[in-house]
Design a protein around this nucleic acid. Structure first.
Length: 876
DNA sequence: ATGCTCACG
DNA sequence: ACGTACGTGAGCATT
């Protein structure tokens, strides 16, 4: 018989966890759903990952348990279960039933005891057992066959406690967890323990004595101390606490293991509960949606001949593509609609119609499109210059809420309550199963997309108007899409030969370093594998473990840097890492992206992706080409102008984010510093360190001040700063306090922006871009803190993005007005890269800074630095 | 598919 | 006490 795998869930604990981890969601009928939703997602994930053969969810029974007999105050002083949670328990039971999972509760016993008892029985049967709970007490049950999963931060993130993990984490055996509880107590269960003994002390004592009993036997020999006094005075409490914390594994349960067989959910029942609770995303994700998503009939003609009458003044247009790589992929089909009926135009029919091409290029013929940039780019490959874009669903949705994910029309449409279009996955399948369907199915799908766009245009534009974001969408993002399209289509030339030579040199260097590492390590292994590297460094060579990841030892650069003095191999590994990154990502990866026809790379700028309003760049990412280290920076020598006699011209904003901050907070010292053109990090150092004269600021003071400035932009935390500067957290906290005292305007801004976010649920940028922060009022400290830091950072990063986007639009207009050949090629968050005939450099040096600096007027000046050269490397 | 690491602003 | 800097994308190893 195949080995059984038993999954035991602590129902109460997980429901509580889910309730407090998630914001207070409600469904359409006003029922709270955060606990049910969290519980469901956790369950889905664990079912998917573990595929158990047996399952049970245990619940606590009534108020009193056998523990109350020995200790009346057990779980005393607990806050009453919030009513918002109580109302969800019936649904959780319903959900469990719909999954066909056994649930069980037993009078006088807690869920822990049921779980402990069953785990023990199953282990005797040689089953594999997994226990899932939010309560670390359960870890005492871990054995070689029983793993305890404890949720951490949220509910789907799980820490797996095996005996080895417990040894690693606490230096204790699972059984000693009970002793630990006995000594330190547990406030949430009102278990007293020994006052004054916390986790650290408890572990120390247990490492020395082994158990509570052994400790008290040996206590006579312990040298006199405050701690000894406390231990002696509370001996009884320690023994009682240990008893209370001990999970009872002999509970008189009436279920047997054979009753726990799990064979999957009752899909109909589950779907019904999900619908009742309003779990739309889960319904959509599951395979059960076919029953859920009824599609209405549409009017559709497949046309073989395009007539003038079809090409109206305003139409929704959808060009369906094979995949997202619109610079290289094929078109699958085209649809147009005026909302009444749809016309599906096969690609070959469209391409041979001059009337259709003329319509596409006619500025006065208005088009409503999902993704105008993709459409512009694909048509450009057939020498068609798309004009007259009057609506872009992707951009409009993104401005309404940048968190709206995905570029699939169905996903976007659903956000606005329109469901009469299927997700791509349903039509094409995904992964290896992807196929283009029969023409009638394809025609229907593509037409539905066009119809969706037509219907959504007024809906989404209205929403933009209501939010006072129409201008941002219409005057900034929409024209920017066309400019980005032109940049992508233009591409940037890459000298493949240069890359190839660099690659050769790198390979030689790498193989030398590789051999050195093997020699120093005493064996060959895969240096690229953090797992294997960890074994070599920390097990074999015995280096101290300073940081761990979820899955093992951390071998990140900041850790290795601290280990350099411990062993010679570390330095070589750092070198290897640096060069290997260059080789794989920037030599090999980039080379693969160069188009053979024109020797250029054509990135795609994602305009509707980031949470803050920034762009991102893919295939290849041209926004993370190395610059900080010289070896990497040389990669930029391969980026060259596309024509003889041309050069690359680069212009970047100096300190744009800090200037934005100065503008928004109006702190007098910060504003003054920028107005006077001071070095801002030096100025900050003067204030933080209380130095009156810039000359007295040392390099180290400036470096610290710079880190503090970054911290301010990111939403400061003492821990973050301490990590960055590798200083004690206390020291970091002092720097921050000193900063905020010197710049009270900044402090006020930070406080206000967080308060605004808590009230409104979102923060905004200079041009009224929004970022919603649903977790800002969470009772979960981590979620809330993250949202608070985001509230501080998003307006700064987002406003900087607004500014450079506006500058790109102004710059495009200016280049046209001046009749220049210069072309904008790239944007890298705070810099613009052009190529131009060398004769135009003089004029660019005048107009580029002028346009960029006046893109949006702030109360502090914007400053732009610029340079040019025969490669991107030389434009420095 | 996911986690780790590392490249950029 | 909690457990962290903000925003991205790509390659590799591993499951």
């Amino acid at each position: 018989m195949a080995k059984e795998k038993l999954l035991l869930l602590d129902g109460n604990s997980l429901a509580y966890r889910a309730f407090f981890a998630l914001p207070p969601l409600t469904n359409d009928s006003g029922i709270h759903t955060n606990a049910t939703y969290g519980f469901t997602t956790m369950l889905q994930k664990i079912l998917e990952e573990e595929r158990p053969t047996q399952m049970l969810v245990a619940f606590d029974a009534g108020k009193t348990t056998f523990r109350h007999e020995s200790y009346g105050e057990y779980k005393g002083g607990r806050q009453k279960t919030p009513p918002e949670l109580s109302e969800q328990f019936p649904y959780i039971r319903k959900l469990i039933d719909a999954y066909n999972i056994k649930r069980y509760e037993l009078d006088l016993y807690e869920a822990d005891d049921i779980i402990g008892t069953l785990a023990k029985q199953a282990e005797a049967n040689e089953s594999e057992v997994i226990i899932v709970s939010g309560d670390k007490d359960l870890t005492q049950l871990a054995t070689d066959n029983v793993t305890v999963y404890i949720t951490r931060k949220g509910i789907t993130d799980i820490e797996k406690y095996t005996p080895a993990h417990i040894e690693d984490k606490y230096g204790l055996t699972p059984a000693q967890i009970i002793d630990m509880k006995g000594l330190m107590g547990d406030a949430s269960d009102n278990i007293p323990g020994v006052p004054g003994v916390g986790e650290k002390t408890a572990i120390k004592l247990l490492k020395e004595y082994g158990s509570v009993e052994a400790l008290y036997e040996a206590i006579g020999g312990m040298k006199a101390s405050k701690m000894k006094e406390k231990l002696v005075a509370n001996e009884e409490s320690a023994h009682l606490s240990k008893k209370l914390a001990t999970i009872f594994t002999e509970a008189p349960i009436e279920v047997t293991l054979d009753e726990l067989a799990y064979a999957g959910p009752n899909e109909d029942a589950l779907l019904t509960v999900w619908q009742e609770l309003g779990f739309k995303s889960l319904i959509e994700k599951s395979d059960m949606q076919s029953t859920a998503q009824e599609q209405e009939e549409i009017q559709l003609n497949i046309v073989n001949d395009i007539t003038a009458a079809m090409l109206k003044d305003t139409l929704a247009l959808h060009v369906e593509l094979e995949n997202e790589h619109y610079h290289s992929c094929a078109m699958l089909g085209i649809a147009i609609t005026d909302g009444v009926d749809a016309k599906y135009i096969p690609v070959d029919v469209a391409l041979k119609s001059d009337a259709f091409k003329a319509w596409l290029e006619d500025e006065t013929k208005k088009k409503y499109i999902v993704d105008s940039k993709a459409t512009q780019a694909i048509l450009a490959r057939y020498d068609i210059k798309l004009a007259g874009v009057a609506f872009d669903l992707l951009l409009a949705s993104y401005i309404v809420n940048p968190a709206i994910s995905g570029d699939d029309v169905a996903t976007l449409a659903k956000e606005f309550g329109y469901t009469n279009v299927q997700p791509n996955e349903v039509i094409y399948g995904k992964g290896a199963k992807w196929t283009v369907p029969e023409e009638d199915v394809l025609a229907d799908h593509v037409s539905r997309k066009a119809i969706a766009v037509w219907h959504l245009q007024p809906v989404v534009e209205k929403k933009l108007q209501d939010n006072e974001q129409y201008d941002l969408y219409h005057d900034l993002e929409l024209p920017l899409a066309e400019i980005l399209g032109a940049m992508e289509i233009a591409g940037i030339s890459v000298n493949v030969e240069t890359l190839k030579q660099m690659g050769q040199a790198l390979l030689e260097k790498l193989s030398v370093i590789e051999q050195t590492i093997y020699e120093l390590a005493g064996e060959e292994f895969n240096i690229n594998s953090p797992k294997q590297l960890g074994v070599i460094l920390f097990d074999k060579l015995g280096l101290p473990v300073l940081k761990k990841t979820k899955t093992g030892y951390s071998t990140a650069a900041d850790v290795l840097e601290k280990l350099q003095s411990e062993h010679d191999v570390v330095k070589h590994i750092l070198d290897y890492r640096q060069l290997a990154k260059l080789q794989s990502t920037y030599i090999e990866g980039l080379t693969k992206e160069v188009h053979a026809e024109d020797s250029k790379v054509h990135t795609r700028f994602q305009q509707a992706l980031t949470a803050t309003g920034r762009l991102s760049s893919t295939d290849p990412n041209l926004q993370n080409i190395p610059i900080r280290l010289e070896e990497g920076r040389k990669i930029r020598q391969a980026f060259v102008p596309s024509k003889e006699g041309w050069v690359l011209f680069a212009a970047d904003y100096s300190q744009i984010e800090l200037r934005v901050l100065a503008h928004m907070c109006q702190d007098p010292v910060l504003v003054e510093a920028f107005k006077e053109g001071m070095d801002i990090h030096t100025r900050t150092a003067m204030d933080v360190f209380g130095v009156a004269n810039p000359d007295e600021v040392t390099a180290n003071m400036r470096r610290t001040a710079k880190a503090v400035n970054f911290g301010i932009i990111y939403g400061i935390s003492d821990y973050g700063l301490s990590q960055n500067l590798d200083i004690p957290r206390k020291k970091a906290a002092e720097f921050i306090a000193s900063y905020l005292q010197s710049f009270p305007g900044v402090q006020g801004y930070m406080e206000n922006i967080v308060a605004d976010a808590k009230r409104e649920g979102f923060v905004t940028t200079i041009l009224n871009r929004r970022r919603y922060l649903p977790e800002i009022n969470s009772s979960n400290f981590n979620l809330r803190s993250f949202a608070e830091r985001t509230a501080m950072n998003a307006p700064i990063q987002g406003s900087a993005a607004d500014i450079i986007k506006k500058a790109m639009i102004d710059m495009d207009a200016r280049l046209q007005k001046e009749g220049l050949q210069a072309k904008l090629l790239l944007q890298v968050h705070d810099e613009l890269i052009f190529e131009a005939p060398v004769e135009e450099i003089e004029i660019l040096e005048r107009i580029v800074p002028e346009v960029m600096e006046s893109a949006i007027e702030l109360t502090v000046p914007l400053k732009v630095d610029y340079s040019h050269g025969h490669s991107w490397y030389d434009a420095k």
